[in-house]
């Protein structure tokens, strides 16, 4: 029987029922703090290619000299990424996109957030294999020429353009929704301004990312 009793439920509150809430906040946090910051840093590092082969190789040496680099990579990038990607795929699977019927801007962004999540995943797997794991297994040196040899292939280059633009979109739009998830932008006016700033962010880092790719060929 349903009851309209005014007293509090006497049932103990089950901790497990908060699981989704905690996972979703960790998902958002992982996307913004370690992954987002890493991606921005990574795009900036790669943009040194615009300053020429030497500058780029210098920058790579600098990063490779960070102490405990593999540990940082595992704990600050790989683990948050695997968690974020796994939970993100789950979230994508349970939502039922309806952009055909409701062609609203934010609904389309919601859809593209899911599409770019998947493209980013495919891209990252290929990218990490090419420039992080394969060199470890085969002992090749990571430098400008290695990147150049990959990007000279038109298909690989196009794949990189899509991958980079998709990832930058995903993070830019993720900042916009993240601001809502964390209750920062509450009303429509502040959300609109945040959306414009994120669009600017997307344009700046998208252009930077793609021009850096061109710098390698």
């Amino acid at each position: 029987m349903r009851s309209n009793s005014l007293t509090a439920d006497l049932q103990p509150i089950n901790k497990n029922i908060r699981k989704r809430f905690v996972l979703s906040r960790l998902h958002s946090l992982a996307g913004i703090v370690p992954l987002g910051i890493f991606m921005v840093e990574h795009l900036l590092t790669n943009s040194t290619a615009l300053l020429g082969r030497e500058k780029y190789n210098e920058q790579i040496h600098l990063i490779q000299s960070i102490p405990f680099l593999p540990l940082l990579e595992i704990f600050l990038v790989a683990i948050p990424l695997i968690f974020h990607a796994g939970y993100g795929i789950y979230l994508s699977m349970i939502s039922k996109s309806n952009t055909q019927t409701y062609k609203y801007e934010r609904n389309r962004l919601f859809f593209f957030q899911r599409v770019t999540g998947i493209t980013t995943l495919v891209f990252i797997i290929y990218h990490v294999w090419s420039f992080r794991l394969a060199p470890v297994f085969y002992g090749t040196e990571i430098n400008f020429d290695l990147v150049n040899s990959h990007l000279e292939n038109v298909f690989v280059f196009s794949f990189y353009v899509i991958g980079v633009v998709g990832a930058v979109f995903h993070f830019s739009n993720g900042i916009r929704t993240g601001l809502i998830t964390w209750g920062v932008t509450k009303g429509p006016a502040s959300q609109r301004i945040a959306q414009r700033i994120c669009l600017l962010f997307f344009a700046v880092f998208g252009v930077l990312g793609v021009t850096s790719l061109f710098a390698f060929i």
Binding site: L91, R106, N107, F110, F111, I180
Partner: peptide
């Protein structure tokens, strides 16, 4: 946590 901010 189930809201994905599509704002429909």
């Amino acid at each position: 946590s189930n809201c994905g901010n599509s704002q429909n």
